[in-house]
Computed example of a mutant assay.
Amino acid sequence: MSILITAANSAPAYKLKKLLNNDNVIMGDHMDLPDFMLKPGKLIRLPDPKSTSYTHEMLTLCLDMGVETVYLFRQAEVDLLLESETLFNEYNIKILVEK
């Protein structure tokens, strides 16, 4: 199973990745990422929290990629996904907030 870390274009996200020391870490961001970073598969583009279906898009992405833990860094993501934490828990996906 994989771990998803959001805010991939931020230093705290990379610090967490290094601390986790896990080969199954996926870095993602909904903000603009250069194409050269996306093409090698090192980073993925996440759904935008402004989307009305953001929660369902994130759940689908987690299920499709076998994500069991999501580390959130941005407040917009935190606000929306914590409202749906019960739904994610039903699929054994943990939502964790990082600061």
Rank of each mutant, 00 (worst) to 15 (best):
M37Y: 12
Y54Q: 03
K42L: 14
T6Y: 00
E57M: 12
T86D: 14
A11G: 03
Y91L: 09
D35I: 08
E90R: 14
L87M: 15
L61P: 00
T86F: 11
N92P: 08
A76L: 10
T86V: 12
L19P: 10
I93R: 00
Y54G: 05
F73E: 03
P47D: 07
P49E: 00
K17E: 07
K17Q: 11
S10W: 10
M27D: 01
N21C: 09
K42G: 11
D32T: 06
L4I: 11
D29F: 00
I26W: 07
R45E: 10
L63T: 14
L59V: 04
L61D: 08
L82I: 13
P34C: 05
L38G: 01
I26C: 06
A76F: 10
I93G: 00
L38E: 04
Q75M: 09
M37W: 07
T69D: 10
I26Q: 04
A7G: 04
G66P: 07
R74L: 03
N89A: 13
K15V: 10
T69K: 14
T55W: 07
L19A: 10
V70Q: 10
I26R: 00
L72Q: 02
M65G: 00
F73N: 00
P49S: 04
L80D: 02
D79F: 07
P47T: 06
M58Y: 05
Y14E: 05
G66M: 13
P12G: 10
E90I: 05
N24A: 05
E68H: 08
A13L: 02
S84K: 13
S10R: 13
D23H: 12
N24C: 01
D29K: 02
A11F: 10
Y54L: 05
K18L: 06
V25R: 01
D64T: 13
V25K: 02
N92K: 14
Y91A: 13
A8V: 00
F73W: 09
A7S: 14
